[in-house]
């Protein structure tokens, strides 16, 4: 029996990666949920928009690296991130101007907007593959570890070690800052409040003199910023590959739906719920249980519920359960 080592193994293999991944999902889900709350459609292009923003940050990182510019132990990508955010925002504003605005003014059924977002997804995906190609890109530089497992073990003398990668720490810190700023914006500023009002009751917002075009524009700006940040953090942590970003759409939407579509608080909770469930269900628990089991009773098989190839299935299953039992999500989202 050695609960401390079990806890260390759990932290190293489940909690830290889970919280980092959860932060990435939460930021993605926030973008999706804001668009759903204000523009009232599920934006299928969001995953590819994340890839689009990340692509520019990667290109910028390469350029800075070739100039010899770096950010010390932090990844150079953080230096380029603002540039990536601006480009992503401009791209989304252009997409709105050229595609979505037309349908919005016609007051079409939401499904038509979803379909238009399908077209935008196609174009975005094509652009990304055309410019940077479909392959994997790794752009994490700087110091790789803040805490190294081997050093941790050497210093503390425990059997299990806890490692913290710079990308993971960066993800968690940046995500917390972004969420804090976003909630401050939504709850404390005039523009943020007008967005919530518009999301709550569009007609009454118009009667109160809130300018819908401005609300929509700010929404795209926030969504673009969130998408670029989420994409870059994910890419630093796990590497960039356009197709992976497309596939992220499922856990992101699962997170937003679990938390209640249209509810920002729910999107964050949903992101962590999905990520930690994924980690819990696809982690081989033998190592942790071995520390807890009495001498001689250590498990012989992996104690893994599902292979990690099925991580998408986990988020899907959770989403389905929520849709069956509580379609408005854990935090109440928009009416269905």
């Amino acid at each position: 029996m050695d609960p401390l080592n079990a806890l260390l193994a759990l932290t190293n293999f489940v909690l830290i990666p889970g919280i980092a991944y959860g932060s990435q999902l939460a930021l993605g889900a926030l973008g999706v949920t804001l668009i759903y709350g204000i523009l009232r459609f599920a934006n299928i292009a969001h995953g590819d928009v994340m890839a689009f923003g990340t692509m520019w940050v990667i290109l910028g990182t390469w350029l800075l690296q070739s100039w010899g510019v770096s950010l010390g132990f932090l990844p150079t990508a953080l230096l380029v991130l603002p540039f990536g955010i601006v480009i992503t925002i401009l791209y989304l504003l252009a997409a709105d101007r050229l595609v979505f605005r037309f349908y919005r003014k016609q007051r079409v059924r939401p499904v038509t907007l979803v379909m238009a977002s399908l077209g935008v997804m196609f174009v975005t995906n094509g652009l990304v593959r055309l410019i940077i190609g479909p392959g994997s890109q790794y752009f994490e530089d700087g110091e790789r570890f803040i805490i190294n497992v081997r050093e941790f073990v050497a210093v503390t003398g425990f059997e299990e070690g806890v490692g913290l990668r710079t990308a993971q720490a960066t993800t968690i810190i940046v995500a917390l800052i972004v969420m804090a700023v976003l909630f401050w914006f939504l709850n404390r500023t005039r523009t943020g409040k007008s967005m919530r009002a518009y999301s709550d009751n569009e007609d009454l917002a118009l009667l109160s003199g809130i300018n819908p075009d401005r609300v929509v524009m700010v929404t795209w700006i926030l969504a673009g910023g969130l998408a670029a940040i989420a994409g870059v953090l994910y890419g630093l942590d796990k590497g960039f590959r356009p197709f992976t970003y497309f596939q992220m759409l499922l856990p992101i939407f699962a997170a937003a739906i679990v938390g209640g579509l249209g509810n920002p608080m729910g999107a964050i909770a949903g992101g962590y719920i999905i990520a930690l469930s994924e980690m819990t269900i696809t982690y081989a628990w033998r190592r942790v249980v071995a520390h807890l089991a009495p001498e001689g009773w250590e498990p012989t098989n992996l104690l893994q519920v599902l292979s990690s190839d099925y991580n998408l299935a986990v988020s899907f299953a959770i989403m389905v359960l929520v849709l069956i039992f509580r379609p408005t999500g854990i935090f109440k989202g928009k009416t269905i």
């Binding site: 409040k193 009002a197 709550d200 009751n201 009454l204 917002a205 109160s208």
Partner: peptide, 22 residues
């Protein structure tokens, strides 16, 4: 309006603030 005449997820104070948006 007769129906849907408040912002349900916002507080009373925020509802009033939105009324004074202009």
């Amino acid at each position: 309006p007769q129906n849907n005449n408040i912002f349900p997820s916002m507080t009373v104070r925020e509802n009033l603030e939105m009324g004074a948006f202009l």
